[in-house]
Simulated assay, not measured.
Amino acid sequence: MYKSEFFVYEQGKPYSVCIRNYTKDDFDGLIEIQSECFPPPFPSDLWWNKEQLANHVELFPEGALCVSVDGNLAGSLTGLRVNFDPAHPDHTWEDVTDNGYIRNHLPDGNSLYIVDISVRPNYRKLGLGKLMMQAMYHVVIEKGIDRLVGGGRMPGYHKEASSMTPEQYLEKVMAGELKDPVITFLLRCGRVPVAVVKDYLEDEESGNYAVIMEWKNPFKNEGVPGNGI
């Protein structure tokens, strides 16, 4: 099981941080975090429920991480294992995650798929999302999984949709000409775009599009020019 304790600093002030696997005792707090991260008009029935969370800790506890700051629950990151083929990236969030219930988790799946990442708004300046993502990279390496992958929303796209395609929007974000709250964050975490997919999730801000983004296990990245293989 995973547990890492350390300090982060914001404006010179230290905060005690712990990243660990979440358990049944955390369920109420995790649902509260979802309500803060996805307020109305986001439908409340899409927040975590206790049956989903119970599946996370039973079926793939290594993929159920949370972060606390000074003892207060501040965020979570959830994943499952699937078989993912980058040559055929089209899928929906509902299908690949079993609508968040992860009953389709494959213990020997070649990829760790990110179901959700959430950080309380009041704690977002501490870089907790990136720290949890890095912790999940440790899981990928420890278990010898090929990659970490997931779909990134494009919540800034609706502002530009009348003048460019989602692919063009992604190009401008990657060039630094535009900044997207999610895609820019994932790029900073080391994730690399694989493809833009449509109808990934009912998401008006993103036009229902998402960018499938991966992080390859550097210890299993074979056949890349210049790596000595």
Rank of each mutant, 00 (worst) to 15 (best):
M164G: 07
N221V: 07
S76H: 13
K143D: 07
Y200A: 03
I102S: 06
Q34P: 00
C18P: 06
K172W: 11
T184W: 09
T92C: 02
E177R: 04
V194F: 02
I117A: 00
R20D: 06
F84Y: 15
E160A: 14
K216T: 09
K198N: 13
M132T: 05
E171N: 10
K143Y: 13
S206Q: 10
I31R: 01
V57F: 00
M132I: 10
G223Q: 11
Y113K: 02
M133N: 02
G223V: 00
D26H: 12
N104A: 05
P121T: 10
D199N: 15
N227C: 11
V119R: 03
N122Y: 12
R191H: 13
I117C: 01
H138F: 09
T92H: 05
L131N: 05
M1W: 04
M136I: 01
D146M: 14
M154G: 02
S68C: 09
D180C: 06
E94Y: 13
G75I: 08
P155W: 04
L59C: 10
K50A: 03
D90S: 13
D95R: 13
Q134N: 11
S206G: 05
H138G: 14
A135R: 04
G63M: 13
V224G: 01
P107C: 04
E5N: 11
G156D: 08
L65Q: 07
G150D: 02
R120P: 12
P61H: 15
A74K: 02
S76I: 06
Y15F: 15
W48L: 10
V67N: 03
Y137G: 02
D26F: 05
D26M: 03
Y113T: 03
